[in-house]
Amino acid sequence: MILIDAGHGGIDGGTSYGSILEKDITLGISRKLFLMLRSDGFGAILNRLGDYAPSDDNRWLRSSSRHMRDLAQRKELAETIQAAVVVSIHINWAPSPAKHGPLVLYRQEGRSFLLAQSLQEQLNRLYQTDALTRPGKPFYLLNKITAPTVIVEAGFISSPVDRAQLCSSKGQQRIAEAIADGIIAYLMEV
C-alpha cells in the first residue's frame, strides 16, 4: 500500500505566498497522484480528502499539541495500513525568488534513499534541474515511520517559475505524474 500524505491542512496552512497556501497545493497534487496510482492498479491511500488537519482524526496520541497529534496521526496511519511506501507532499520556500526546483528528503536507510533517488530523477526531468536528494534528519515522519519514507518538496512557492506550475491544475498534474513515475520505477526495482 502506498500512503500519500498531503502535507498540512485545516488550521495548518503551511508556507504561503500572498493568499496562496501550501495546504491547498499539496492537496491538489496528492489527489491527482492518488487517482493516477489507483488507475494504474496500485493500492494507494490518501491521508486527507479535504481541508482539515489530520490531528482532527487522531486516536493515537493524547497531547495538547495539535502539531504533535497531527504528526502522530500520520505515523500511526502508515503503521496501521502497513504502508510499503510513504510519500509526504510539501512545498518549499526560500528568501530568494531565484531559488527553485524540487527537493526530495529521505529517511536515512537504503530503501528510502532509493525511493528518493527515483523521485528526484523524475522531478529533475520535469523541472530541468539537477538537484540532489538529502537526508531529512530532523523530520518526525522520517525518524518515526518504519516504511521507506520521503518528503517531496515539489517546488518553491517563493519562485515565480515554480509557483506558476504549482498553482495550475496542469502543472499539478505534471508534478503528480513525475511523482507517480518515480514511485512506480522504485517499486519495479525492489
Results as ranks from 00 to 15, higher is better:
Ala84Val: 02
Asn124Gly: 00
Pro148Asn: 00
Thr26Ile: 01
Ile20Val: 15
Met1Ala: 12
Val152Arg: 02
Gln108Pro: 01
Leu141Thr: 14
Ala147Leu: 11
Trp93Glu: 12
Gln165Ile: 11
Gly10Asn: 06
Pro160Arg: 05
Asn124Thr: 03
Ile45Tyr: 15
Ser16Thr: 13
Ser19His: 13
Pro135Arg: 03
Ser168Asp: 08
Gly50Asp: 11
Gly101Glu: 02
Lys144Met: 14
Tyr127Glu: 00
Ala98Leu: 10
Leu27Val: 10
Asn58Lys: 07
Ser169Cys: 04
Ile89Leu: 10
Gly28Met: 06
Thr146Tyr: 14
Glu76Ile: 03
Tyr52Met: 05
Leu114Arg: 14
Gly18Thr: 09
Pro148His: 03
Arg125Cys: 09
Met68Arg: 10
Cys167Lys: 04
Ser39Asp: 15
Leu114Cys: 09
Ile11His: 13
Ala185Thr: 14
Ile179Ser: 00
Asp56Glu: 15
Ala78Ser: 08
Leu33Tyr: 07
His90Phe: 08
Ile175Arg: 08
Tyr140Ile: 03
Asp24Trp: 13
Thr15Tyr: 00
Ser118Glu: 04
Phe113Ala: 03
Ile20Ala: 03
Asn58Arg: 04
Ser16Trp: 09
His90Tyr: 05
Asp130Val: 08
Arg174Leu: 13
His90Trp: 01
Val190Pro: 05
Gln128His: 13
Gly110Met: 12
